[in-house]
Design a protein around this nucleic acid. Structure first.
Length: 477
RNA sequence: CGGGGUGUAGCGCAGCUGGUAGCGCGCCUGGUUUGGGACCAGGAUGCCGCAGGUUCGAUUCCUGUCACUCCGACCA
């Protein structure tokens, strides 16, 4: 431990979680701050993570018949205004363009905060017959919401995401689509990102502006706070009616289609950081890690070492994303640096190893070292990557379970809410006032009504009236 | 939007009872090193966040502003 280490060190995770988070975002070179408040620059390493996420998800969407499109960046005010709840929800946080080419515009336009209105306008143009349905569209883009408080990934004024927009002939079909996409998000988070999530439905208070129902996946971060990780909305025909989207049905009558939208954003990168990271820095799930194995030559000036390392890189490239760090830095520096950047596996190769035709593999999560014969790398590396993936999922799940409390009365709720952050499972009567009371008295917001319901008690802990459903409550990002 | 904190070299910071700046790390060059953040020697780098004000003179004092950050409110 010397001065250098102290200077470069990231804040310990249990000392100041938010500072730890910011340190990682900057020091692992994921983002930089842009010239405009709340606008982040995704640096190559951060973008590579997002890019891997987009590739996997894009494949999943296409597998289920979705097509990518690109919609305009601007929304004329009149268009945004068409759906009452929607505009009320978003108007306070949009950015407006009032001048173009030096001239005051006749009608101001907002920079899209989300594209429902644009899609609806477009659907109205291109939809004619039931034979045109369903239309299953998606776009990868950035959107702008003028947030007051901003943080890298978690809440930025501009963020990148995908937004799927679909229209269907029947209500049932649209509901099925909403559920299918929510499941896709949940599968992606659990299987690729190794983040355990709770699937459920939002209360009316928390649902999307203009939606009939909003479904969500909620994840718990290392500090016990909740992060809404993706949402899927069922609109019914509300937007269709507002935008006059119609088609001629099988019975030759004019009908309104049923609509959905669903999205996942760069916020999910924040979830990865806050779910899996530790005092040494990031821990990236192998599926989306830009570098899955980093090769660090030891005593690289000795004859044959760099050559051997390069040879291994060529071999490994065939089945993993690999980087050879042949920079001038000392091995110790490289170990720390790549650990901070969350690379799942490190491969050390030095003269002693070459003599014995072996190398050292070190797991990022446990830092466990294994000597591996060079001809076993093709089996051993995938094995260790899988073991790491399983372990970080397990760790995250244990954290959530340890911090989940079932409460039957307000006394328990208040006690739980005043301690460490946690998920609180409690029954709810369905009344807005009781939801608000949880916020006012305990500082808790409803995260969702999980699909997997449990009967914690018979009555709502706030008002004592018969309970309708179990809600997971928590403090949210 | 309210309250607190911070803006000085790439990063982390010091300095200033007013006289235009310094340390550590990093960076560049050369050499020695290399299995947990190496060492020696030499070198480069500053509109002291921005704008006003006070002053002979402001990085320093005052006002405003912007940015970052934390806490709250708001918010998907």
């Amino acid at each position: 431990m010397n001065n250098k280490k102290l200077v470069e060190a990231i804040t310990p995770i249990n000392e100041d979680f938010t500072q730890w988070y910011t340190d990682i975002c900057l020091k692992a070179e994921l983002v930089d701050y842009g010239a405009v408040k709340g606008c982040m620059i995704l640096r190559p390493y951060g973008y590579a993570i997002w890019e891997n996420i987009t590739h996997i998800m894009d494949g999943m969407f296409k597998e289920t018949g979705h097509e990518n499109v690109a919609m305009p960046l601007f929304i004329p005010e009149s268009l945004l205004q068409k759906e009452k709840d929607h505009v009320e929800g978003f108007a306070p946080e949009v950015a407006w363009v009032t001048i173009g080419g030096g001239e005051e515009l006749e009608e101001r336009m907002c920079v899209r905060p989300t594209s429902e209105t644009l899609f609806c306008d477009h659907f109205a143009h291109v939809l004619h017959s039931w034979r045109d349905l369903p239309m299953l569209y998606n776009q990868w883009c950035s959107v702008v919401r003028w947030e007051k408080t901003t943080r890298p990934f978690l809440r930025s004024r501009e963020f990148w995401w995908q937004e799927g927009h679909t229209i269907h002939e029947t209500r049932e079909e649209a509901i099925a689509e909403t559920e299918q996409q929510l499941n896709a998000y949940a599968d992606f988070c659990e299987n690729y990102l190794k983040i355990p999530v709770i699937k459920g439905r939002k209360t009316d208070k928390e649902k999307f502006a203009g939606a009939e129902a909003t479904y969500t996946i909620e994840a718990m971060m290392h500090d016990g706070k909740a992060l809404q990780s993706a949402t899927s909305h069922f609109f019914g025909d509300g937007f269709s009616r507002a935008f006059d989207v119609t088609f001629t049905g099988r019975d030759n009558t004019l009908q309104y289609p049923h609509q959905t939208s669903w999205g996942i954003s760069t916020r999910i990168v924040g979830a990865i950081i806050m779910t899996h990271g530790d005092d040494e820095g990031l821990i990236l799930p192998p599926a989306i890690a830009p570098i899955q194995v980093v090769i660090i030559p030891v005593a690289s000036h000795k004859p044959g070492v760099l050559e051997k390392a390069a040879e291994l890189k060529t071999r490994l490239k065939k089945f993993v994303r690999v980087k050879l760090d042949d920079s001038d830095n000392s091995p110790g520096w490289k170990f720390s640096q790549w650990e901070m950047k969350g690379v799942p596996l490190r491969l050390e190769i030095g003269p002693k190893d070459i003599e014995q035709n072996q190398c050292v593999l070190v797991r990022r999560d446990t830092r466990e070292k294994t000597f591996v014969a060079l001809d076993e790398l093709e089996t051993k590396i995938p094995e260790l990557l899988n073991a790491l993936a399983d372990n970080i999922y397990k760790t995250a799940l244990e954290n959530r379970e340890r911090r989940t409390v079932a409460c039957t009365d307000m006394e328990q709720v208040l006690a739980a809410a005043s301690g460490d952050n946690c998920f609180i499972k409690a029954m709810w009567c369905g009344d807005d006032a009781c939801e608000q009371a949880m916020k006012d008295k305990a500082g808790l917001s409803s995260r969702c009504m999980p699909f997997e319901q449990e009967q914690i008690s018979e009555v709502c802990p706030v008002c004592g009236k018969p309970a309708k459903s179990m809600v997971v409550w928590g403090k949210a990002y």
